[in-house]
Design a binder for these strands. Structure first.
Lengths: 256, 256
DNA sequence: CGGTGTGTTGACTAGCTTCAAAGGGGGTGG
DNA sequence: CCACCCCCTTTGAAGCTAGTCAACACACCG
């Protein structure tokens, strides 16, 4: 499956520079030679079109994937058949890590727009990470990071108001795009309101109302899918805010 | 840190049999010799008493931990200083995986009762997993599993009613205890109602009312912290149920 | 034996969902 | 290229779930 295409290693290397695998490879002093070994097992797929599936639930894990450009959403189906979005994946981010444990994808991955993808055959990645300890360490880090962000998101869903959720969502998109060199304050939301609502555990109507409210508060400007953030600090404040009231005093003092 | 104690390998091996590291080690044909190498780096800590911390947020990652007996809760503090429980860890389960990415524990871990713990120095575990590919694979699997259960839990928080959440929680405890050879239908909830509510994103009062309701429905019997499940299937049904209505027809048929 | 913390129960409230309907773009077909 | 249609989005009003507030019951502990 997926015959490794011969690629221009120079350009691929450049591409890898903005990828999460890069961040997590080079800093540890993985040598040039080893980097080339890694790059050799990575192949590009032909771009996905909007609504194309990268994989579906139940498919065996062949590879993990990195988004080169575009957006991918991952989702599962609940017992009663409705969709639950588990994440949006922006350029430089990885998908498919949740499939390692059973060797089968527990969720589906679908492009929200034209999207290009790097494919990293998992068995070969594992082999390589035995030979390159730095790579193994980085894989552990990447997976740990995902566990951490999932925990953070659980807090969002469990404790935060609808306002805080949407604000945090926008801040998350902003930050992640910013890390990859895109604008933090102007971007397109490639997902529908429905997707956002689904992801945040809210009703579509609530999300729509919140966009309107944020705009009238001067925090953001909304032009359909195009968002301009006017007040990053303000938005962050809304995101961090306690659902009902903020004591303001004795911050971060847990007590024994 | 943590001078490796000389242990009776025979008894430790036995202990490891009911541990998640075991499940995820032996099946892959890790040899006896390699298993001994693993066991040699694992040390026991002296038991934790109720309310003792295993680690606190901000502490550097020295080791990951496995619960031998007892229960541990992990939690973070929100921006405004209130506790958010991220998980309960039963015998045989691992803690601390979320600390790998930054080398620092993002959350706290605290014993809910007298608890004994195995400590696995992470740097030595990493070294070992380079030498034992099967071990590396199992670590990937364990972390992947955690990502997967986190995603599942996100669905619970985002889409399910309070009833479904508590039912799913009880089923989760039941299943996990059952996997370790404990009773699936009779157990002590070592965590307080407050902890349960916090974890599930509910108010304490709601949790209390739900326990009463489940009892009057004949699903469970509640005697303070001691729970008897009378109807596992019924509880599962409540857990899986759609918050409002259940279509009942066309299950699991996504459509393209 | 009181004190304290934990758990339960009731009444009220708020926030979000649901239901309903209309506006607006983008895509498709003629 | 235009027109139609569908779906996404927005807005309004009503309803319900779960949260909040308050008071009490119960065990556990010193």
């Amino acid at each position: 499956m997926s015959a490794p295409k011969i690629l221009d290693l120079g350009s691929l290397k450049h591409a890898c520079k903005s990828c999460s695998l890069h961040d997590l490879c080079l800093p540890l002093g993985v040598g040039d030679e080893e980097l080339q070994m890694l790059e050799r097992i990575i192949s590009r797929r032909k771009p996905l079109q909007r609504r194309d599936h990268l994989y579906r639930p139940g498919e065996p894990l062949h590879a993990i994937y990195a988004v080169r450009s575009g957006t991918v959403k991952t989702y599962t189906l609940t017992d009663d058949g409705q969709e639950q979005i588990t994440g949006f994946h922006l350029p430089g981010e990885l998908l498919g890590l949740d499939a390692i444990s059973d060797g089968v994808h527990p969720c589906a991955a679908r492009a929200l727009e034209t999207t290009s993808i790097c494919e990293i055959p998992f068995d070969r990645l594992e082999e390589l990470s035995v030979r390159i300890p730095g790579l193994q360490h980085q894989l552990f880090r990447i997976m740990s990071r995902e566990i951490q962000t999932d925990e953070h998101f659980m807090m969002l869903l469990g404790k935060k108001s609808s306002e805080a959720r949407l604000a945090a969502f926008l801040m998350s998109i902003s930050t992640r795009l910013g890390m990859r060199g895109f604008s933090r304050t102007e971007f397109n939301l490639t997902m529908s309101r429905n997707d956002i609502a689904n992801y945040l555990g809210l009703a579509v109507e609530t999300v729509s109302r919140l966009f309107t409210r944020f705009q009238s508060l001067g925090l953001i400007q909304v032009q359909r899918k195009f968002i301009t953030i006017h007040d990053l600090e303000g938005l962050q404040a809304v995101a961090g805010a306690h659902p009902v009231e903020e004591p303001q005093s004795n911050r971060g003092c847990p007590g024994p």
